[in-house]
């Protein structure tokens, strides 16, 4: 019981308090670049979620049961990026072959996930801070749900920005960053929620 509670608390804290985008700054490029279509933001978020979970599941045993016993933990980054890139290709291949409709919504985002810092960031944090398996899973789950929530909220907010008269220099990315700053302030309110 205690384990379940701490698992859920860890998920919440990785999702809201230590949000990927707004306080850990992973995946800003895709966060800014995905634009103001809520639907495409949601697809992007789902794709990232899936890859993060898969990467966590593969990389955890690879690090703790292969790299560490062999005495070569310094190869972690190289191994992780290869695993993540292969995973993305394999998932992409699977989608391409089986489901054209899914490919239509996710297809353009798949190559971008390899270079999304969120995936490598989660996996690297897991091994850098020596998290146990359950906390690693919670990190993966919380991070990806947090990414999904924030990227969808952000797309909604930018949709509303469309009709407003913004100074010419602020158009595009600068105003998006200011919006992100306001969101980050709102998310600061979650601080201290989980002791």
């Amino acid at each position: 019981m205690e384990m379940i509670v701490s698992f859920i608390l860890a998920i919440v804290s990785y999702m809201l308090i230590d949000n990927v985008v707004l306080s850990r700054f992973y995946g800003i490029c895709s966060f800014i670049g995905v634009g103001n279509k809520v639907k495409s933001a949601f697809s992007m978020g789902l794709a990232v979620t899936f890859v993060i979970m898969m990467a966590t599941l593969v990389c955890y045993p690879l690090y703790f049961y292969v790299l560490v016993p062999a005495g070569i933990p310094f190869l972690d980054t190289l191994v992780y990026i290869l695993v993540i890139a292969s995973l993305v290709q394999i998932v992409g291949l699977f989608i391409k072959k089986t489901s054209p409709s899914l490919y239509k919504t996710l297809g353009i985002y798949l190559p971008l996930i390899t270079t999304n810092c969120a995936v490598l960031g989660v996996v690297q944090t897991n091994s850098d801070s020596q998290l146990d398996f359950l906390t690693s899973l919670a990190n993966g789950l919380g991070t990806s749900i947090g990414f999904l929530v924030v990227i969808v909220l952000f797309a909604c907010m930018r949709e509303r920005l469309n009709g407003y008269n913004i100074p010419k220099a602020m158009k595009g990315v600068p105003i998006a960053l200011i919006v992100a700053a306001l969101m980050a302030m709102a998310f600061m309110g979650f601080g201290g929620m989980v002791g």
Binding site: L22, P167, G172, I175
Partner: peptide, 16 residues
Amino acid sequence: PAGAFIVLGLMLAVMA
């Protein structure tokens, strides 16, 4: 973090 976003946003705006 909020300050980071604001500073970068303003810098990009000045550049633009």
